[in-house]
Design a binder for these strands. Structure first.
Length: 594
RNA sequence: GCGCCGGUGGUCUAGUGGUAGGACAUGAGCUUCCCAAGCUCAUAGCCCGGGUUCAAUUCCCGGCCGGCGCACCA
């Protein structure tokens, strides 16, 4: 401990921490509402100098762990994509909300829900708007809140995607992606080439996504433009298993659906290995990434006492997702979603396979080639052409289909095909019908995808919140951010003890030296030394170096290094400074060991 | 989107039908010299639009923004 009075910070976080943090963030440049000069705009935040740096460091840490260390590729796709992409992804329809407002009490309700709850319609969301309005009138549906009639009220759609136009005019609509993942799925046909058509492989992307939220809330937690770090891990569901050994011993707090539904349910403490064995986590792939994520979250500074993995309840899960877990962090008593881990099966790639001309499949070679007997046709176009004119190609398609499903149809002299309700007799000899043995080397499969999807802004907020501390030093109140050195915006502050040319010169030399070693350094020579320490405490700088008169007396050999959380000080030789501090930053050395 | 409450220097806030005061922060100087010290000076503010009024930061209406509740959150 320091020679100074130093109170413990255990009880430092209170309900009001969020308020204090938001104020600090604004004042010190972590984040603030955007476009303030024009009245501000809801749901958009700017990361200031400190925040941008912290966010960048968090992203770098994520990249190191989820791309580099896992051997995955990273891409950077556009945020705007054309309409067909979102027709395929389902966002154009599925992201639509139908809202109807009560004329009496003013409450807005999901029109499709009102219809589904009170009629025999089961999928009201797929009905066109006018029809929903008709149904509401016909059944004389009422407001769920106050009971007033809703007939005659306009049903309005609200799509959470931001729309724009690509190029001049409005003939080519585009949308800002509502999740960064879409860029990975869309580029899959090319990405699989880079993976040399071998499963499994993973692709990451860190980037912005946009949702035109009806009501952005709670500072930076729910915004309209946000950064996601996503990994799409493509696997062959029949062949690929994760290396669970590597994470089996990771201890986790799990909050399974069963516990959430139980009267007195509560989160359970277990390990990844046990959770998989006991079937708590059904997908080993999801389990694997939970096991990777937990230590990573700890490393960037999330308080593990306020962290858990919560399983989605069946109702909140997308229909295609077999199992889904969220990473959650606690903020002032509320659990907020930090990441989602979903086993999405082949949903995304199948949709694009269906909507796009491109192939979203992987060719999977059999161990042994298979020999199959197959009926084929090779029609004589010099006959079919003149005979059927423009319909000739349709005839060929029909013949191919017929050969595949009923080769007996070709047993006679002629074969009958149905074309637009007419039956045509075609001489079999003109069809080139044959039954051949073919060898198949493999098949095209649609990979399944495991998706760990991280919210970066929310994580930055959580890291700041969990790092917020208040204590007392020498009877003076102090506020500081106990940020992990790996992510702190500034790693070291360098000060001359007071205004003095010699002290300042030496201090500036040290700044250059440390920056040359790749450290993030700030220099400050204003006012009192204590004030400068507090300033750095408040932005979370882990270390401060002070040049004093002892430094000068000994021909500039040693300086004071002060640690943020304890305010302890040690004297270090200047020429070892860069090396020692780098080692501390990289976790190879602890300040106490000096 | 609805309801309630709110919006005053960078931050936090006092106050007013006659254009505003404090604290902290910031900058300069003096002083001091290892934990927000002192003194002097300086910079800097009534969210936007309309209305009422001789006069609006203040009252009224609308908007924007924020907090909370409801709804929403693929």
């Amino acid at each position: 401990m320091s020679e100074h009075e130093h109170a413990a910070a255990d009880e430092s976080t209170t309900e009001a921490t969020s308020e204090k943090l938001v104020e600090l963030a604004k004042r010190r440049g972590y984040f603030f509402q955007s476009s303030g000069a024009y009245g501000g705009v809801g749901g958009f935040y700017t990361f200031g100098p400190q925040g941008a740096s912290l966010k960048g460091n968090v992203e770098d840490a994520w990249r190191d762990r989820f791309a580099v260390a896992e051997g995955n590729m990273e891409i950077d796709a556009p945020t705007i994509m054309p309409e067909p992409v979102f027709e395929a992804s389902g966002h154009l329809d599925g992201f639509d909300d139908m809202l109807v407002e009560c004329p009496d009490c003013g409450e807005s309700h999901r029109a499709d829900h009102v219809v589904e709850d009170n009629t025999e319609y089961e999928d009201a969301e797929s009905l066109p708007i006018p029809e929903v309005e008709e149904v509401i009138a016909e059944y004389e549906l009422v407001c769920p809140s106050c009971g007033a009639g809703l007939a005659g009220q306009a049903v309005e759609t609200f799509n959470l995607m931001f729309a724009t136009n690509i190029g001049p005019g409005d003939s080519d609509p585009g949308y800002l992606r509502p999740e960064t993942a879409q860029g990975i799925f869309v580029e899959f046909p090319r990405l699989k080439e880079y993976a040399r058509n071998q499963l499994p492989f993973g692709v990451t992307q860190i980037g912005r996504a946009y949702r035109n939220e009806i009501s952005p809330r709670r500072s930076i937690i729910r915004v309209r433009e946000f950064t996601q770090a996503e990994l799409e891990y493509f696997i062959d569901p029949e062949e690929d298993d994760p290396d669970l050994e590597r994470v089996a011993d990771v201890e986790v707090t799990l909050y399974p659906a069963a516990e959430q539904n139980a009267e007195d349910g509560s989160p359970i403490e277990t390990t990844i290995g046990e959770a998989v064995e006991e079937g708590v986590i059904s997908s080993p792939w999801v389990a694997y990434f939970l096991g990777v994520a937990k230590p990573w979250y700890e490393g960037v500074g999330v308080d593990m006492d306020r962290f858990r993995f919560r399983q989605h309840l069946s109702g909140e899960r997308a229909h295609y997702a077999a199992d889904c877990w969220d990473a959650e962090g606690e903020i002032d008593g509320n659990w907020i979603e930090l990441a989602g881990f979903a086993y999405r099966s082949d949903y995304d790639l199948s949709k694009h396979e269906e909507y796009s001309e491109d192939r979203f499949t992987i060719f999977k070679q059999y161990d042994e080639p298979k020999t199959v007997e197959r009926a084929t046709v090779d029609p004589d176009m010099s006959y079919l052409g003149p005979e059927f004119g423009g319909a000739a190609q349709d005839v060929v398609d029909e013949l191919e289909a017929l050969a595949a499903r009923d080769r007996e149809a070709f047993a006679g002299e002629t074969v009958a095909i149905e074309l637009e309700d007419e039956t045509h007799e075609i001489p079999v000899e003109k069809t080139g019908f044959a039954v051949e043995e073919q060898t198949e080397a493999g098949e095209h499969i649609v990979p399944h995808v495991v998706e760990p999807s991280f919210g970066v802004g929310r994580l930055v907020y959580t890291v700041l919140h969990h790092a917020y501390r208040e204590d007392e030093v020498d009877g003076e109140q102090r506020t500081y951010l106990a940020l992990e050195p790996e992510v702190a915006p500034t790693f070291v502050g360098v000060f001359p003890l007071q205004s003095d040319d010699d002290l300042e010169t030496t201090a500036r030399e040290i700044v250059d030296d440390l920056r040359g070693a790749g450290l993030s350094v700030t220099y400050d020579d204003s006012g009192n030394i204590g004030r400068r320490y507090r300033r750095q405490d408040e932005v979370g700088t882990p270390f401060c170096v002070t040049v004093d008169y002892e430094t000068l007396e000994n021909e500039a050999t040693t300086v004071t290094v002060r640690e943020r959380d304890t305010t302890d000080q040690k004297r270090l030789p200047i020429d070892e400074l860069a090396e020692t501090l780098s080692a501390i930053r990289d976790g190879e050395l602890a300040f106490e060991e000096l």
